Simulated scan of single mutants.
Amino acid sequence: MAQNTENRLDASMQQEVSVDEDVLALRAPLVLVRRNDQGEWIFEGPGESPRPTVRTVLGAVVNAWPHVSALAELEPGSAAVWSWDSHGWTSEFECTCGECEQPVATDLDRRTWPGELDPEDLVSVEETALSGQEVLTNILYTSGRIAMLGPGEQHRTSDQLASVAMANVIRRWPHTMRALCSVRSGYLLRWNAESLNWHEYEAV
């Protein structure tokens, strides 16, 4: 995986971290982030913890899953869960009333699927972005099809792209759900790593 120079998190991008094997293999979405009492980062998919993990560096994770950059305030000993409903991270907390429900890390399902999108629609995805070698930076909608691209020119050859079902694109990059709902034909959405949101531009 390539490394991102952006560092919003309270750690060196060279720090070793643990990543769920299923997340790293793109079999599960990254929906749970924990920090142990020593401050080590653990990135996981849905299911019971602990899960089998692989060691990599924090910069590689930030590069492959940009939505983790929003966790700059996650402190050692705490955890955050991705909410498909609110489209963002929610923190675990200590309940004092005995009636609170802790957030649970889950996979994308029909209940949380946006009605504007067809989960089986095919999306053209740049293979280097899909694998995490490049950061996903652009969502382009032209000629009736959506393309998910890394940095650089908007045009790609067919051998640089893979066809991926819409549902799996969103599982791969949870922070793209609302962007994919709003992208307009003839326009480009570009990820802003500083403000952590998508900006719209007319495609050229």
Results as ranks from 00 to 15, higher is better:
Asp20Leu: 02
Gly186Glu: 07
Glu73Leu: 12
Gly47Thr: 11
Thr96Met: 13
Trp113Gly: 00
Trp65Arg: 04
Ala203Trp: 04
Tyr187Leu: 10
Gly77Lys: 05
Leu71Cys: 10
Glu99Asp: 15
Thr112Val: 09
Leu196Gln: 10
Asn168Lys: 11
Leu136Glu: 02
Ser143Phe: 06
Ala64His: 05
Glu194Asn: 15
Gly45Glu: 02
Ala167Arg: 02
Tyr141Lys: 00
Leu108Asp: 04
Gly98Ile: 06
Ala11Leu: 07
Glu75Ser: 13
Phe93Tyr: 14
Asn138His: 09
Glu44Trp: 12
Thr5Trp: 08
Thr112Met: 04
Cys100Leu: 13
Val17Gln: 01
Pro119Lys: 04
Arg184Pro: 03
Ile146Arg: 01
Arg34Val: 11
Asn7Thr: 09
Ser69Val: 11
Thr128Asn: 06
Ala28Lys: 03
Asp22Ser: 13
Arg145Pro: 06
Pro29Ile: 02
Leu188Ile: 11
Gly39Cys: 01
Thr96Arg: 14
Gly47Ile: 12
Asp37Thr: 12
Asp22Ala: 15
Arg145Gly: 03
Thr90Asp: 09
Ala179Lys: 00
Glu40His: 14
Val135Asp: 09
Glu94Pro: 08
Met13Leu: 15
Gly39Asn: 06
Gly88Leu: 04
Ser49Tyr: 15
Asn4Leu: 09
Leu26Met: 14
Gly47Asn: 09
Glu120Phe: 08
Gly45Ser: 09
Val135Ser: 12
Ala70Asn: 11
Arg111Ser: 07
Glu21Met: 10
His199Cys: 15
Gly59Gln: 03
Ser182Ile: 06
Gln102Trp: 13
Val62Glu: 07
Asp109Leu: 02
Tyr141Asp: 01
Gly152Asp: 09
Ala70Asp: 13
Cys97Met: 12
Glu200Gln: 11
Gly186Pro: 06
Leu161Asn: 05
Val57Asp: 10
Thr53Glu: 07
Ile170Ser: 03
Glu202Asn: 14
Val164Trp: 00
Ala167Ile: 03
Gly77Pro: 05
Gly98His: 12
Thr157Gln: 11
Ala72Ser: 15
Tyr141Ser: 00
Tyr201Ser: 14
Trp84Phe: 03
Val33Thr: 05
Val164Asn: 00
Glu101Leu: 14
Glu120Pro: 08
Asp37Tyr: 08
Thr142Gln: 10
Gly59Ile: 03
Glu120Gln: 13
Gly115Ser: 05
Pro174Cys: 10
Cys181Trp: 02
His155Ile: 11
Leu188Asn: 06
